[in-house]
Amino acid sequence: MTTPSTTAKIRYEDVEAGAELPAQTFPVTRATLVRYAGASGDFNPIHWNEKFAKEVGLPDVIAHGMFTMAEAIRVVTDWVGDPAAVAEYGVRFTKPVVVPNDDEGAVIEVSAKVAAKLDDDARTVRVDLTAMSAGQKVLGMSRAVVRLA
């Protein structure tokens, strides 16, 4: 049973379907991936070893899908304030974020909009997210159900 959030910064009455959330861009370098590997415990070498990544048919080292998923939801949690307002969150990993070994790395661009107001009692909305890197959509079916105040 989903109950309304008492702490979200955004009020259910104040949003309409179609409203855009503030978009954000997230830089990713090799150092970012090493740090994420340690924090998450995912040491798959495709995320840090270029030789290994190429041997398994990837263009280069790629970001952890879960890293991209973690960045994308920040557009929602920064919007609502209390991260506990996120009741559901799901994504499909459609394309990898390729991270070259240079000072620039890659950039993940995330935009989001309120797709629908779901439940006037639970005060929930569905937010659809779009995550792009190097002109490609890296997440599909990226959706969150968010409890508003």
């Binding site: 702490t7 970012t32 994420y36 340690g38 890293f67 920040r74």
Partner: peptide, 19 residues
């Protein structure tokens, strides 16, 4: 590691303010 500065993750008082 994900660069997220939301205080609910690191500051007990901020987390308490959210209940």
């Amino acid at each position: 590691a994900v660069g997220d500065a939301n205080p609910a993750y690191t500051d007990t008082e901020a987390a308490k303010a959210y209940g």
